[in-house]
C-alpha cells in the first residue's frame, strides 16, 4: 500500500526536477489518485457518519409530519395559550404549559441538587483529594451513572418520598420534589466527571501564579481555577440540563401522571416525557388525535432542548473567546 500511495513530497520532487529542465511542472493530479481500497474505506466511513444523520433526519421527518397533522386539528393558539392538558377527557384541552411546567419544575429541582454537589465533588477530586482517593472515588462515582434509571425511579418513590414526607407532612405520594432530587443525584456524576476534566485541564501555571501572590488554596480554587474552567463547567451543566429535561423513567414512576400547571414541588405533576410514555404504553389507537399528541409534545420537547443547546453553545463560545 505504502509504495502505491504518493505523498505530496514524492510528487513535488519530480515536479521540481522538471522545472529545472525547463519543462512545465507536472500537474498535481497524482496526489488524488487514491487506490480503490482507500476509496472504499473512505466511502464506508462516510456511510457510517451519514447513518446517524439520516436517522436524525428521519426522526425529524416523522416528528414534523405527525405534528403537522396534529396542528391541522388543534389550534396552535390553544396549544400555547392554554394551561390545561386533558386530551383523553371528554372535554379535550391541549395546553402544553401543563406538561412544560412539570418538566421545568423537576429539572430545576434536579439541577439545584446536581450543580452544587457535582461541582464540589469535582473540586474535591481534582484539587484536594490525595491521588489514591481520586483513583478510587472517581470510578466509583461514575458507577452511579450506570445505575438503570428505573432503579432510581423506584428509589425515589419508595425511599426518598417517604423520608421527605417525615419532614413535609403534606407531600403527596407522587410528587415533583422526590423525583427531582433523585434525578439530581443521578446527574451528579455527569457534572462531577465533566467538570473535573475541565478543572484538571486548567494549567498549573495559573495555580502557581495565584499561590505566588499569597492566595490560599481555597481562594485559588474559587478565584482562579473555577473561573478558568468555566466554559467546561458550562458545557457540563448544559448536558446535565438536557439530560434532566429528557429523563423519563424517574419522573414517570415517581412524579405522578397528572398534568397540571404548577410550580408546587409537593403535588403530583407530569413531565413531557412521562406523558409520552403514558400514551405510547396505553391503549390509545395509533393515527388518532389522542395518539398524535405525543408527537406534538415530542416536537415541543425537541424545540426546548434545541434552544438550550444553541444557547449553551453560544455561552461556551463566548467564554472560550474570553479565556
Amino acid at each position: 500500500m505504502s509504495e502505491t500511495t504518493l505523498s505530496p513530497a514524492a510528487v513535488a520532487e519530480p515536479a521540481a526536477g522538471a522545472a529545472g529542465t525547463g519543462r512545465k511542472p507536472a500537474p498535481r493530479r497524482a496526489v488524488r489518485a487514491t487506490p480503490l481500497g482507500e476509496r472504499f474505506v473512505a466511502a464506508f466511513l462516510f456511510a457510517c457518519g451519514a447513518l446517524s444523520i439520516f436517522t436524525t433526519l428521519g426522526i425529524l421527518g416523522v416528528l414534523g409530519y405527525e405534528t403537522a397533522a396534529f396542528f391541522s386539528e388543534v389550534s396552535i393558539v390553544d396549544f400555547l395559550g392554554d394551561t390545561e392538558w386533558t386530551p383523553l377527557f371528554a372535554e379535550k384541552r391541549f395546553g402544553i404549559w401543563a406538561l412544560v411546567s412539570g418538566t421545568v419544575l423537576t429539572s430545576l429541582i434536579a439541577m439545584a441538587v446536581a450543580l452544587p454537589f457535582g461541582l464540589l465533588s469535582a473540586v474535591y477530586l481534582s484539587e484536594l483529594a490525595p491521588s489514591r482517593a481520586r483513583r478510587i472515588l472517581k470510578p466509583l462515582m461514575e458507577l452511579l451513572a450506570g445505575v438503570p434509571t428505573i432503579v432510581y425511579g423506584f428509589f425515589a418513590l419508595t425511599v426518598v418520598t417517604p423520608l421527605l414526607q417525615a419532614v413535609i407532612p403534606d407531600l403527596a405520594g407522587f410528587n415533583a420534589l422526590g423525583a427531582g432530587i433523585v434525578m439530581g443525584v443521578m446527574i451528579i456524576p455527569m457534572i462531577a466527571s465533566l467538570s473535573e476534566d475541565a478543572i484538571h485541564a486548567v494549567p498549573r501555571a495559573l495555580r502557581e501564579a495565584a499561590w505566588g501572590l499569597g492566595a490560599s488554596s481555597l481562594s485559588t480554587i474559587f478565584g482562579v481555577v473555577l473561573p478558568a474552567a468555566r466554559s467546561g463547567i458550562a458545557a457540563a451543566t448544559t448536558l446535565a440540563i438536557s439530560r434532566a429535561i429528557g429523563e423519563t423513567m424517574i419522573v414517570a414512576i415517581a412524579a405522578g401522571q397528572q398534568p397540571r400547571f404548577t410550580f408546587d414541588p409537593r403535588v403530583p405533576v407530569e413531565t413531557m416525557t412521562a406523558y409520552i410514555v403514558q400514551i405510547s404504553m396505553g391503549d390509545v389507537p395509533t393515527g388518532t388525535l389522542e395518539f398524535r399528541t405525543i408527537f406534538a409534545v415530542g416536537a415541543a420537547l425537541f424545540l426546548l432542548t434545541f434552544v438550550m443547546n444553541v444557547f449553551a453553545q453560544r455561552l461556551a463560545r463566548k467564554y472560550r473567546r474570553l479565556g
Binding site: 501564579a209 501572590l213 490560599s216 482562579v224
Partner: peptide, 24 residues
C-alpha cells in the same frame, strides 16, 4: 514566572488587583 501567566478570565485591572482580591 518564565511564561507570562495572566489570569485568562480577568481584565487588565482585575489581573493587577487579583493578589489583593484573592487574599481579601
Amino acid at each position: 514566572f518564565q511564561k507570562p501567566n495572566p489570569f485568562p478570565t480577568m481584565s487588565i485591572r482585575d489581573n493587577v488587583l487579583s493578589g489583593l482580591r484573592l487574599t481579601g
